[in-house]
Design a protein around this nucleic acid. Structure first.
Lengths: 176, 176
DNA sequence: CCAGAATATGAGCGATCGCTCGTGTTCCAT
DNA sequence: ATGGAACACGAGCGATCGCTCATATTCTGG
């Protein structure tokens, strides 16, 4: 039964970190604060990858930009996958840890801004909805692939999944 | 901190069910078994929806069939969303509850079989990968929408999300 | 009506949790 | 060298967990 957050008891965390629980509680007022600190650092790392990628493609057309964004999503998910899995699958959206939501919000807002800058290349009109569809699809594909299907990340083609995800999103965004 | 499985203590479950814990443990040998029973019933319900939808579209072309499959995915996710969220987000993929994976496996296999029956309509060649991409995308879109974006399920258009998801998948599957 | 089987009950056991606090140790200005 | 601030320590508190078991209640065939 116990897994994720609950497997990480404060005593175990302290032992693993090589300090006593007493010391641990001098730096973090509660287990919740400790988890928040870990989660926020992780999310900051991820957002840096996302922001850098979006800045990099800001001037690039959607047709080539999406590929870069997909690659960035894979890179982001490959960054400490075990931690990412626990945080994304076990963080309650309600309750004291709900503050992690802004990460998704910002990524969504940034992607929407990029799409709006390139709206003349796109088929869709509701760019908020389009950004939601792209974000969710890319996130799910890379997330699932990194955690459960590492085989599709390095196949006969160099990166089959990245190619497919790019196809998926471009076929959706661009006019046919 | 406590949420999901851990918020549901055996004593609370028993009280909520209107029986004593003693009685509860006459029917389920452990909390794990109880959770498994709940999860299996839920997954059976979902698989029935998926199987029925795939049987219904078996002879239909991809262009019209995908829309039905997307609708089925939304229906499935709308079936007890709170339970679905706990099961899908908090069930550890490793450990004693790992037995829930076959659900995804079967759905993936069924979709792949459908795609193979219609391979002459499709652009892709690796239908296993294509099934993975479609499953993951549709699942993520409907899952996220039902749980966190109910607004995109009933907008100005009758079902904006269903339309977008169908566009996404068809644009990916069909030759341009 | 009754014996025994089947079922229901909940106090409480041992384990584990997050966390406290009295104590020991290290460091540095004087 | 010394006194005090800052830091580290871990035994153990109170709460809660999953679960047991001695006991009470209900059902059923003769």
């Amino acid at each position: 039964m116990r897994d994720g957050f609950d497997r990480a008891s404060t005593n175990r965390i302290a032992a693993q970190a090589g300090v006593s629980i007493g010391s641990l509680y001098q730096y973090f007022p509660s287990k919740e604060a400790l988890v928040m600190a870990v989660a926020e650092r992780h999310n900051r790392d991820l957002m840096n990858i996302v922001r850098r990628a979006l800045a990099e493609v800001a001037a690039a057309p959607v047709r080539t930009g999406v590929r870069t964004l997909v690659a960035a999503a894979i890179t982001a998910h490959a960054h400490d996958p075990a931690l990412h899995r626990v945080l994304s699958e076990q963080t309650p959206r309600t309750g004291p840890l709900a503050g992690l939501e802004p990460f998704n919000r910002e990524a969504h807002a940034l992607l929407r801004a990029y799409l709006e800058d390139h709206r003349d290349e796109l088929r869709a009109t509701d760019l908020d909805l389009a950004a939601f569809v792209c974000m969710t699809s890319i996130e799910a594909l890379t997330h699932t692939a990194v955690l459960y299907r590492p085989d599709v990340l390095e196949g006969p083609a160099r990166e089959p999944l990245a190619d497919e995800a790019t196809q998926l999103v471009l076929g959706y965004l661009l006019p046919s």
